[in-house]
């Protein structure tokens, strides 16, 4: 069975480096070498924003994806970037797997669109690297902030800032030259691209304004046409590699925050359920309420229940 796997972004990010080699190895073991895998990195086959058409079209078989890029096809995914999604990485590690009602809810929606969700994971709450002190929601007013997705853009707008669309590669110089006042994104990227060199502050918000749920998705037809034995091997290989990667992401998060702190950046942490947390939550209360109205009640309930 030939299998093409595509990832984008830095090949050094744990979502790639801690997943792909393990996945290939386990696939080999579990199938007795029946898969011929070709993997592509850094968006050389499919770029991040094109995954939602490329996977259903079968351009590649499996791809890394952010959930948010699917908002143009599965509008419900945007709930993951609203304050309604308040799960920790640990919760995601233990629960957001096949069989979990939320996982299955999204998987069903994706299948209607020609894709199967193989795995979901949390690469960690987004951080905001800024050149202005950022402690409270008020600090965000009038500031232009680079965002990575539509959902993050809505949050910044809600807080009174101006979201700016900008390629990952331009963020460093954008921060340095003051093209933007700050940038919101994954901690791994912020550390990997050394954004702390060109910013003075970093907000570690632990999820109160959003986290980054990513996944691996597969072309549905390919998945369904696959020999059941091989499909089983594939699912097991995905599940085991995903769990190990999610654990790695949890372990490394605190270390990366330390790295930023040691660089001399002023790191502000919003602890879950602290007084500061409450302030941010309140600032986004209207936004959360709107979201509660906007998204299907069943889904809102599922998330609230867990």
């Amino acid at each position: 069975e030939r299998l093409s796997i595509s990832t984008w972004g830095s090949p050094k990010h744990p979502q790639v480096s801690q997943f792909i080699p393990q996945f290939e190895k386990k696939l080999e073991e579990k199938s007795g070498g029946k898969f011929r895998v070709r993997s592509f990195q850094g968006g050389e086959m499919v770029k991040q924003e094109f995954v939602p058409t490329a996977i259903p079209q079968g351009t590649v078989d499996i791809s890394l994806t952010t959930m948010d890029t699917w908002s143009g096809r599965v509008p419900e995914v945007s709930i993951l970037t609203t304050p309604l999604w308040n799960k920790s990485m640990q919760w995601t590690r233990d629960n957001l797997k096949p069989g979990d009602p939320i996982f299955d809810y999204f998987d069903a929606k994706f299948r209607e669109q020609g894709a199967v969700v193989l795995a979901l994971f949390d690469i960690g709450p987004a951080v905001v690297s800024t050149n202005f002190p950022l402690k409270t929601p008020d600090d965000m007013k009038g500031k232009s902030v680079r965002v990575y997705s539509r959902g993050a853009g809505q949050v910044i707008q809600e807080l009174g800032g101006s979201p700016v669309t900008m390629g990952v590669g331009d963020v460093y110089s954008g921060l340095q030259r003051g093209t933007v006042d700050g940038a919101m994104g994954g901690l791994g990227g912020a550390v990997g691209l050394k954004h702390y060199e060109v910013t003075d502050h970093m907000l570690v918000q632990n999820g109160v304004i959003g986290t980054l749920v990513h996944g691996y998705v597969m072309n549905r037809d390919k998945f369904e046409r696959m020999d059941p034995e091989l499909r089983k091997a594939l699912l097991e290989a995905v599940a085991e590699s995903r769990d190990a990667m999610q654990q790695y992401l949890i372990d490394i998060y605190a270390k990366q925050v330390d790295e930023v702190r040691q660089s001399g950046s002023n790191v502000v942490t919003i602890e879950q359920n602290s007084a500061e947390w409450k302030v941010w939550e309140d600032a986004l209360a209207d936004f959360a309420e709107n979201a509660r109205q906007e998204y299907p009640a069943g889904l809102v309930k599922l998330i609230a229940a867990d």
Binding site: V46, K47, F50, T53, A54, Q57, G58, T59, G167
Partner: peptide, 19 residues
């Protein structure tokens, strides 16, 4: 049909580059 779909999918990806 897969070749046909990939042709247009990849071509579109090559066209929509802001730079």
């Amino acid at each position: 049909f897969l070749a046909f779909r990939s042709f247009i999918q990849i071509s579109w990806q090559g066209a929509s580059i802001f730079e």
